[in-house]
Design a protein around this nucleic acid. Structure first.
Lengths: 225, 225
DNA sequence: ACAAAAGTGTTGTTACTACACCCATGG
DNA sequence: CCATGGGTGTAGTAACAACACTTTTGT
């Protein structure tokens, strides 16, 4: 049961914040923006901003990511809402946190003069974060690891064509541990979700790897790991 | 990155709504309140209300449940936030939905004259709901079923002592399908989370059932089903 | 020919499913 | 002694983990 009345003290500002993950060079990375406003000047934070007047939170996140980073994530879902009354020293602002994934290839940053700095940071070594963003980071990582086991979200972190080494690298970076190459290939093949594209990844001074494609990029659920 | 400024058009009301589940007579039930305010007079909705000024959402849910139903849930967690700009016809109100469980024994209702009616409804046959509460119900049910498989939340729907029949009834009601009695008992015993209390449940004209207790009532994660 | 990553099978163990009868009690 | 739910075991199958060598290419 919800009730709407007229503007009152109970009114609250609603922010959206996005935790964007990608895997680069075998490391799980996330995007942070260096703040240029008090009281967190110089601190790093997830990209975010206030919810627009007649805008859904999802649309707000997309807009804010475009403006602040130039990124259009390939996967985006609501994570959780953080509402501690003291989380923003300047007033009551609750944050609807979102969870986003992107392939390394799409992770080129638009840098604008508007923000001090925008950078990818390894999840294993984040700097001091503003607000309660440390807590948001922990929740996002937990969600990512959990979903890896029963959905195909890893798809969203890979380009159209990829090698088995690429795919396994994503899983290993997220889980933070190595996986057996043969068992991994067997499992992925048995799921029937990927198919060889017919092309080869040449380039190293070694045997070229077969390239694969996802049969279907839409989200689906299954036992993966 | 979030930013706090002074009151503005962007301010929003934040409601909390709670989906409370219990299992009674083998059926999964949820608690609804009949509304007495326009524009949803007579419609049913989950208990809820506006977030207090310097109150966490969790505290707000606890308070509202106490006031509206007299119930103190044994399990309570955030579900998701529903923010469609048109979800409340009277203004911009986003709803932080919560997910609660309670044993049948604790589900006695405090009925007050303040609300038209407060009733347990079988999840399989809910009436027409106000706002976007149909969507909230679907999300809550999905969460419940998912968590049943990898957490011990079912614990929160049982009294201190219970028989295997009680335990299995909870699982079957939630999943909406029957389970094999022997396999179920084997699995539950192998998890090592319950132990016989030594007492027997007398009462039927049949062999009395052994009563069990949870070794530990705190939330934990494992492969259950 | 060598370095470097790609690719490939088997075996043992463990977890899951399906299935039917005897037991203890109250009336 | 009968009706009612309580309580138990086995066998076949499927999924998982551990493990090392051969292949193909570039230099």
């Amino acid at each position: 049961m919800t009730a709407a009345t007229h503007p009152s003290k109970q009114d609250v500002k609603v922010a959206v914040d996005a935790v964007i993950f990608t895997v680069r060079d075998g490391r799980l990375m996330t995007l942070l923006i260096q703040m240029n406003k008090r009281p967190f000047t110089g601190r790093w934070a997830f990209p975010g901003g206030l919810l627009g007047d007649r805008q859904t939170a999802l649309a707000a996140v997309r807009r804010i990511l475009r403006e602040q980073t130039g990124i259009a994530p390939s996967y985006l879902e609501q994570l959780a809402t953080f509402d501690d009354p003291g989380r923003d020293p300047l007033g009551r602002v609750i944050s609807m946190a979102y969870f986003a994934l992107i392939p390394d290839a799409g992770a080129r940053l638009r840098t604008t003069a508007k923000y001090t700095d925008v950078r990818w940071w390894p999840v294993a070594g984040l700097p001091a974060l503003a607000y309660d963003h440390r807590e948001i980071a922990a929740a996002a990582l937990a969600r990512l690891r959990a979903k890896l086991g029963y959905t195909n979200i890893a798809w969203s972190m890979l380009p159209r064509e990829f090698t088995f080494a690429d795919l396994q690298e994503v899983y290993e970076a997220i889980l933070g541990r190595g996986l057996d190459k043969r068992n991994f290939r067997k499992k992925m093949m048995s799921l029937g979700l990927i198919a060889p594209s017919g092309n080869l990844a040449r380039g190293g001074s070694h045997r070229p790897a077969a390239l694969f494609r996802f049969r279907d990029r839409r989200p689906s659920f299954m036992d993966i790991l």
